[in-house]
């Protein structure tokens, strides 16, 4: 039997991402054998850990038809707060909690305005981006603050455990936790239900607003964790980290993983695929010395094409 080209396309479309990854990996490996070395592969995971943690956190938000553009400044502010707490003599666990609470507060605020006041998430989180950046700059100024003498903190981003970087362990832990939440708990089902039909979810007796608030809070905390990993990785905290484009990478990863921006369908596990895809492309382009401006353009094109593909698939 001869399958028509569209039929073949439809059959292959769900596997487009893994297939594309395979092609790209082979292409990079052929043009630069160093690409396949274990060190480089671990390096890729380490590089994507920060974006990956944020993407895992944002998947649920996007599944409910929302979006969070404010993750970049949250990342910056949580690093600054954690460092300032350490410098003020606050013990390490409490400093981390302080950093994470930044994400929690911003996320809850986003969630409250989106879920309770029903304002559009793009605009709300765009405004929040500006407000959190302003707050971060107000607290930390535009300078880089080096982290000195906090070995335990620095280890989060740059230490190793069982032969793998601690940040990779952290990324894996966050991912596994959220995959379990999605697959095994009522929250996972509820997220899908809200994304499919929020009115129906409410009329089925669910507390949809509270749930959405919680999802934005999860997203905020994810960004805060990423902020702590980032600042400890580069041994500096700064209010200007998480520059414009950070949220774009995160959203792109989620969307590449097949989560629809209209809400509904989505999966944490596939988000990880999206993260790795972007990570491999970034890494490959770096190895091949592609200039940063081309990388930006390429990223925009990849997002547009993958979205168009998913539209075509539907």
């Amino acid at each position: 039997m001869i399958a028509s080209v569209p039929a073949l396309g439809r059959r292959l479309a769900p596997h487009a991402l893994p297939l594309a990854m395979l092609v790209i990996i082979i292409a990079f490996a052929v043009s630069e054998p160093a690409f396949l070395k274990p060190d480089n592969l671990i390096g890729i995971v380490r590089q994507v850990a920060i974006t990956g943690i944020m993407a895992v956190g944002m998947t649920f938000v996007i599944m409910t038809g929302g979006i969070d553009l404010s993750v970049g400044p949250v990342l910056a502010l949580s690093g600054v707060i954690a460092l300032f707490s350490l410098d003020a003599g606050v013990p390490l666990p409490l400093s981390i909690v302080a950093g994470l609470s930044v994400g929690l507060v911003v996320g809850l605020l986003n969630g409250f305005i989106v879920a309770r006041l029903e304002l559009p998430p793009i605009i709300v989180t765009l405004a929040m981006l500006s407000m959190v950046r302003g707050s971060a700059l107000l607290i930390g100024g535009p300078d880089l603050h080096p982290i000195r003498g906090h070995e335990a903190y620095a280890a989060i981003g740059s230490g190793d455990f069982l032969g793998l970087p601690i940040s990779v362990h952290l990324f894996a832990a966050v991912t596994v936790l959220m995959v379990l939440v999605q697959k095994l708990t009522p929250l996972g089902l509820l997220v899908a239900a809200i994304g499919e039909n929020e009115r129906a979810a409410r009329l089925s007796g669910h507390r949809t607003r509270l749930t959405k608030m919680a999802l934005y809070a999860i997203c905020g905390v994810g960004a805060a964790i990423a902020g702590i990993v980032q600042s400890s990785q580069v041994h500096t905290a700064s209010a200007v980290y998480g520059e414009f484009g950070t949220e774009l990478d995160v959203i792109a990863s989620v969307v590449l993983g097949g989560t629809s921006l209209m809400g509904g369908n989505g999966s944490i596990a596939r988000t990880i695929l999206g993260v790795m895809f972007l990570g491999i492309i970034n890494n490959g382009m770096n190895i091949l010395n592609v200039p940063i401006d081309i990388q930006l353009i390429a990223k925009g094109v990849i997002i547009a094409v993958s979205l168009a593909l998913s539209e075509w698939r539907a």
Binding site: L248, I251, V255, L296, I297, K299, G300, I303, A304, L307
Partner: peptide, 12 residues
């Protein structure tokens, strides 16, 4: 999302 993508592309 389209204009977010072109934002990155145009800036690049």
């Amino acid at each position: 999302i389209a204009t977010l993508a072109t934002l990155a592309a145009y800036r690049g």
